[in-house]
């Protein structure tokens, strides 16, 4: 009888401790999110660095995630090693890996270890991590032959010299990367690291992509690489003249809002980003 009662008490205690832990976790997450909001508003508390150090070890991935975001917000490059480890650690939650990549590329400059981590991240099973790693490379990558070869291999299924010029009947079949967002980010990265004018074909092919966001990324990458590599002007012109500039998105304009803005010098609504979409990563 006593043993049963003891057992019931133990179970109740375990149950209560689980509830308490859950409530503590929720309160801590709320506090962490508040700290992040404050940081975004320019209010960086003096103990934040210590707090980040502690929270990076927390069991709850959501709290670790906030700590990772805070590192990026404060551009705390002393945490580079932790972020690099998080990015390449497959056991971390997808959002933690993704935000590690974002925080890393917000730093003004990054070490080679970070570039290597971005490359590792390009093979991540989670597409948002691949996207952010590619964007990291587009921001911090420098012209390099091995990087160029590696990126081309990640974008295309076969060597680019075996891919004909457009039109291709089933264009998607030529790509290794099926996710359009990752593909666009990889092209941007290629635009930063491409080192050989003979490989420009890799950026010409997607200028006729079906998805305009990929086309746009290819255009951006192509122009950046062409300028850097002093690609022949007439070739650039002929390629760009044949490019499909129509797209499935447009920005609506309310003429009365424009008039209101002109007359009052202000608009009571937030401005619309120029490209129509706020890219969360850029």
């Amino acid at each position: 009888m006593n043993r049963d009662t003891d057992g019931d008490c133990d179970r109740a205690m375990v149950f209560l401790s689980i509830i308490k832990k859950n409530l503590d976790g929720k309160a801590r997450l709320k506090a962490a999110e508040k700290r992040l909001t404050d940081a975004k508003n320019g209010e960086w508390l003096s103990d934040t660095d210590d707090w980040i150090r502690e929270m990076l070890k927390h069991d709850n991935w959501q709290i670790r995630n906030v700590a990772v975001k805070l590192i990026g917000e404060g551009k705390k490059s002393e945490f580079t090693e932790v972020l690099t480890n998080f990015l390449t650690d497959g056991s971390q939650a997808g959002f933690v890996r993704r935000n590690s990549a974002i925080s890393l590329y917000t730093f003004d400059s990054v070490e080679d270890t970070v570039i290597r981590a971005f490359f590792v991240g390009l093979d991540d099973p989670y597409w948002e991590v691949r996207t952010e790693c590619a964007l990291g490379l587009s921001l911090h990558g420098v012209a390099d032959a091995s990087m160029t070869a590696s990126l081309i291999a990640k974008i295309y299924r076969k060597p680019i010299d075996r891919i004909p010029g457009y039109p291709i009947f089933w264009p998607k079949r030529i790509y290794r990367e099926k996710n359009f967002e990752v593909r666009a980010a990889l092209l941007r990265a290629l635009g930063s690291v491409l080192d050989n004018p003979e490989l420009m074909h890799a950026l010409e092919i997607p200028l006729s992509e079906d998805i305009w966001k990929v086309r746009e990324a290819a255009l951006d990458a192509f122009v950046r690489a062409a300028r850097r590599l002093r690609y022949p002007g007439d070739r650039i012109k002929s390629l760009l003249m044949g490019m499909d500039l129509t797209c499935t998105e447009f920005i609506p304009t309310f003429p009365i809002r424009r008039t209101f803005k002109q007359l009052t010098g202000s608009d009571n609504t937030p401005s619309v980003p120029e490209d129509g979409i706020t890219y969360h990563a850029l």
């Binding site: 991935w61 939650a93 997808g94 967002e181 305009w212 998105e249 447009f250 979409i277």
Partner: peptide, 25 residues
């Protein structure tokens, strides 16, 4: 809750917009 996204955005119409489709389309 498992720390990742499967759809670009949710609900479905936001996911389609995220892919670069205009609202009307």
């Amino acid at each position: 809750p498992r720390g990742k996204r499967f759809f670009f955005r949710a609900p479905l119409h936001h996911s389609l917009q995220y892919r670069g489709l205009a609202e009307t389309k």
